[in-house]
Amino acid sequence: MTAATISLRRWGFVHKWSSLICTLFMLLLCVTGLPLIFHDEIDDLLHDQVKPAEVPPGTPQANLDSLLANALASAPGKVPHFLVWDRDDPNAMVVSVGPSITSDPSKNTLVRMDLHTGAYLDAPDVTGRFTYIMLKLHTDMFAGLPGKLFLGLMGILFCVAIISGIVVYAPSMRKLSFGTYRARRTRIVRWLDVHNLAGILLVAWTLVVGFTGVINTWADLVLKLWQFGQLSEMTAQYSGRSVPAKLTPVNAAVAVASQAVPGMTPSFVAFPGTIFSSKSHYAVFLHGNTPLTSRLLKPALIDAETGKLTDTRDMPWYVSALFISQPLHFGDYGGMPLKIIWAVLDVLTIIILGTGVYLWLRRRKAGVTVERSIASASSVENAALTSP
């Protein structure tokens, strides 16, 4: 047995077991990810929500302090955590409020406000929505951080399976033309041809989606790293201060941040004491105005007592990598044509995973009989059977 044959068998072993371990979870992610590609369209179809008033382009925004007061009037006993400019609806703003400034923001109430009139729109409970359930299954299987890290591990195995599949593909196809589909062969040979062809055609896309998915599972850890790194450096000299009894107007804080970072647009405001800021600062996060820079955020810290800028910096590379990976993973930065392409590629990936499971089950059921049938069809097909 040659060294090349031994090496190929080792790669085949890696491909088989990395695929088998992660396949069922990858099927879950592909199935739940498909409706998430069209989550905006699904929500619009299934759920009614109050629309903001139509206004001419260039209409000035409402005073943020008045808008905030109206939002809090609709949620008595709650305190504001974040003001968020709605990316999907430029005429709306979302105010995230909780029972206290230290409460879990993931359980906050989301109040939608008209950005130009400052009027209350609604406060939808999204936790019962179909798209929310799909999102939770897709991101952490309702298991929180452990679920995210587990899915991240499955994503790493998926990337290993793709790379090892590339290695075993070329030798297994050296006697066959690219894209060969042997329609007159046995069923398992036909399924093997479908599995191999779809796998090699989608290798770039599956690697991109798999790798960006792994990065997204690290979002909580990236946030903690940023908090204890850059944010701590920016607020070190204010570490002994508490949340001010009276805050400077949020509208003025946003104006100071916008002036300090020209050419960028406010994306959201974190109030003092929340996870994205210190106890004594507003953190105003701004984004650029190009397709790429619109996904990148830059924080500006505004002293909540004096209203003065204290620091602004570009985000570290690892945070920027996370921001870029999120829209790339779901394909939601190129409009409906890109969403359709992403959906088609997702369905093809489901086919790859499904045929892999089928081939492995047939091998388990028939043992060497299947291997011999493939070997009789082509001397290289037995090596290709190492794929699940």
Results as ranks from 00 to 15, higher is better:
M1N: 14
A4C: 12
T5P: 15
T5M: 11
L8R: 13
L20H: 07
L24H: 09
F25H: 10
L29H: 06
G33W: 10
L34C: 01
L36F: 09
L36G: 12
L36V: 00
I37Q: 04
H39R: 06
E41W: 10
D48G: 14
Q49I: 03
V50G: 10
E54W: 05
V55T: 07
P56F: 04
T59R: 05
P60Q: 12
D65E: 07
L67W: 11
N70Q: 05
N70M: 12
K78G: 03
V79Q: 07
P80R: 04
P90F: 06
S96T: 10
S100P: 09
S100V: 03
P105M: 01
K107N: 13
G118Y: 07
A119V: 09
P124R: 02
V126Q: 01
Y132D: 03
L137N: 05
M141T: 11
F142I: 01
G147Q: 03
G147A: 01
I163V: 14
S164N: 05
G165R: 05
S172K: 06
L176H: 14
F178R: 14
R184Q: 00
T186A: 15
H195L: 04
N196G: 11
G199R: 01
V214T: 06
D220Q: 14
Q230M: 00
S232H: 11
E233L: 02
M234T: 07
S239V: 14
R241I: 09
S242M: 11
S242W: 05
P244M: 06
P244G: 10
T248H: 14
P249D: 07
A253V: 02
V254P: 10
S258C: 12
S258F: 03
G263E: 14
G263M: 03
M264G: 04
P266A: 00
A270K: 08
F271W: 15
I275S: 13
I275M: 04
T290L: 00
L297V: 03
D303R: 10
T306V: 06
F323K: 08
I324M: 12
P327V: 00
L328F: 12
H329D: 05
A343I: 01
V347M: 09
T349D: 05
G354Q: 06
G354S: 01
G354A: 00
T355G: 00
V357R: 00
V357T: 01
W360S: 05
R364H: 03
R364W: 09
V370N: 03
A375H: 05
S376T: 02
V380S: 14
V380M: 08
A383F: 12
P388W: 15
